Simulated scan of single mutants.
Amino acid sequence: MSTRWRQITNELLSPLALAAYVAWAVVWLVTIGGMERDGSPWLWPARVAMLVFLAGFLAMVSGLCDSRPGRHLALSLVLGVCALGLTLMRPNSAAAILLVLLAAQMAVYLSGWRLFTAIALVNGLFLGGLFWFWDAGPMAALTTVVAFASFQAFAALMIRSNQTAEQMAEELRAANAELLTSRTLLAAGARDAERLRLSRELHDVAGHSLTALKLNLRALAADPRQSDPERVRLCAGLADELLGSLREVVREMRQDEGLDLGEALARLGLPFPRPALRLDIEPGLKLRGRDRIEAVLRAVQEALTNAARHGPAQELAVHIRPEAGRLQLCIEDDGRAPSEPRAGGGLSGMRERFEALGGEVCLSRSGRGGLRIDAWLPEGEA
């Protein structure tokens, strides 16, 4: 099963969706069952309306129309017509429960005054139907509408609260990823600064003292009054060896050991339950240079955040290879991206970092329908 169909299956089998299916089944049993017993002439239109409502509801829940917002409105209208039609075909039935499902689904795509207006319009039509078709009294009609409207409002608020919580969780994960990246960069910078400080101390203090010791030993060895000149020359030779070793240590300490990319990127993906980060990096590959490290880490961080927020993707694959004098990066998710992706603020910042280092970033749509980022950095200290 492809990732896209696995995602649709997860949406269709979510707890909220399963509860909605149970509610729809109850409406079918009560409404359609009652019409069958009564021999209602509206039996077949009611069956069609129920099935159309279910099909539209499944389409909205699965997210098949996410790429075209206009479909949300069209499906909401279809669901509303079916639900209101059923309430008119079968007075005093459970068909009004479908209006609660409709309100919950509208809350996925609407918010604020738009959601309030849509619910008010549906219930206004419901109230009109009670007067004109059910011939209900004002108090009974108003009580029925208010009762079902309260259920609709509750369902809509629950959906909106859930979406707000998910959005806050995504923002928290993005902030956590930002913090992890900054912490990695700070740790690398701190290690470099400490290594440089120690190398300077060794060179300036110990090196100076050893040089002075070596000169004094040579002077002693040249003194004709020295009783054991061979031992003094031996000490001078040891001082020479120690000074040479010290210079080698200082030279090595001044060299940047680099950052283990695999380890750093694996930590970066930990805050995200989705998408799963799949790394394809040469074992032990290290990157040197703070600017180069930041460019790569920020690129993966931005790709993770985009895939989680706008995809929505289940997997993010990161391929990094040193090839032909370049460090090649390919970042690809399995979410949904437009045919011609455009760089927003984060992706533009990514491109600017790479171009400042002499590299390049290209955006395209992957074979799986998600966003693909191809980038490279020129050969450096890698």
Rank of each mutant, 00 (worst) to 15 (best):
A59Q: 13
R90T: 02
A141Q: 08
S339T: 13
H208E: 05
L196P: 00
G284A: 10
E282Y: 12
S348Q: 14
R114G: 10
W44K: 13
F131G: 03
L64R: 09
L287A: 06
A303G: 11
E332M: 15
L121K: 14
L185Y: 05
A187T: 11
V232M: 10
L297C: 07
D256T: 00
R290H: 08
A264M: 05
G207Y: 01
R247A: 08
A17Y: 03
A104K: 00
S227D: 07
T31M: 09
D260T: 01
M350R: 05
L51A: 10
G33I: 05
F53G: 00
L86S: 02
G284C: 03
S245C: 13
L13D: 11
A20Y: 02
L84C: 08
R372L: 11
A147L: 14
A136H: 12
E332N: 15
F151Q: 08
R37K: 06
A17L: 04
P69S: 15
S182F: 12
A190W: 05
V232C: 03
P322E: 15
V249S: 05
R218G: 02
R114E: 06
E178I: 06
L130A: 12
G244P: 01
A55H: 12
N92G: 08
R231E: 08
D334R: 12
G258L: 02
A118W: 01
